[in-house]
């Protein structure tokens, strides 16, 4: 076998293995899309329970993302810029929601959101079975996506840029608002998008905190159990289409502009 043949064999192996991965993602989505008739889809779009559930899911996940961003984005900046004892441990803890089973996350949340907890006493009955409880469950499982994306965005800003701002008279707060945020906004929007998407898709933790009011993943599960695949499928396709439209738009907005290479010599 010549060197040229070996190179071809390597390329073909990459194409075949890569195609299998692409197929793994595309096949179920395409199968579901093609197996759903437009009549079923239209019926689902006019189904009051589906529409209410879709709105609930999108809005609660969005509010959870927005509220978490208020504290999460400054926290990500601090994690990117400060070195302090226990930082590595804190980073590991903040990543835990990604690695623990989400049903376990739901159970863990029950121990702080239930009727007989501090939260339960403060709220007069706890957050189980409430929209707020759903929001907390969504936030718990999805916050690492925001924190990590924003932190990586802040870390990409050369430290010297922020130091230069300080020496020019900017306070730490001014550095955050006038330098760090405007430079890292794309990473922050990407993190918020991922967090929102992850919140929308959450089933395990949400179903333990609140079966009702029903979010879309819970509704799809309930319809699959009670009415069968055909009824679940239409709702699922509707959710996927709405998500693709929203996240496609956000991704396009937060993509860095294409710039040509320019020489920097004087």
């Amino acid at each position: 076998m010549t060197a040229r043949d070996r190179a071809w064999a390597f390329h073909i192996a990459i194409v075949l293995l890569g195609s299998a991965v692409v197929l793994l993602v595309v096949a179920p989505l395409a199968g579901m899309l093609f197996a759903t008739s437009s009549a079923d889809l239209s019926r689902a779009a006019r189904d009051g329970q589906v529409v209410a559930s879709l709105w609930l899911t999108l809005v609660v996940a969005f509010v959870a993302t927005a509220v978490c961003s208020l504290g999460g984005v400054p926290l990500a900046w601090v994690l990117a810029r400060r070195r302090f004892p226990g930082r590595a441990a804190l980073l590991a803890v903040l990543d835990l929601p990604v690695v623990i089973p989400h049903v376990a996350a739901g159970v863990a949340l029950l121990t702080v959101l239930g009727r007989h907890t501090l939260v339960g006493r403060v709220t007069g009955g706890g957050l189980v079975g409430t929209t707020a409880g759903i929001g907390v469950a969504m936030a718990f499982v999805s916050i690492p996506f925001l924190l990590n994306s924003a932190r990586i965005g802040f870390e990409a800003i050369p430290l010297r840029v922020e130091q230069a701002a300080r020496t020019l008279g900017a306070s730490p707060a001014q550095v955050f608002f006038t330098v760090a945020l405007p430079v890292a906004w794309r990473s922050i929007v990407t993190g918020m998008t991922l967090m929102w998407a992850r919140g929308i898709s959450e089933f395990g933790a949400v179903v333990i905190i609140a079966y009702h009011p029903m979010t879309m993943p819970v509704l799809v599960f309930q319809r699959l159990n009670d009415f069968g695949l055909r009824y679940a499928q239409a709702a699922a396709v509707l959710l996927v289409l709405v998500c693709v439209a929203i996240f496609g738009t956000l991704r396009a907005v937060s993509r860095p502009p294409r710039v040509g290479h320019r020489g920097r010599d004087a």
Partner: peptide
């Protein structure tokens, strides 16, 4: 930020998200 000085760093630390005018006006603005 409370010292009466300014620095030109070796690696400059310019604000790439601002224009030249935005960079020059940054200190007076804050």
């Amino acid at each position: 930020e409370s010292r009466p000085l300014a620095v030109v760093f070796q690696d400059l630390g310019l604000f790439d998200h601002l224009t030249v005018a935005g960079n020059i006006e940054f200190g007076p603005r804050v």
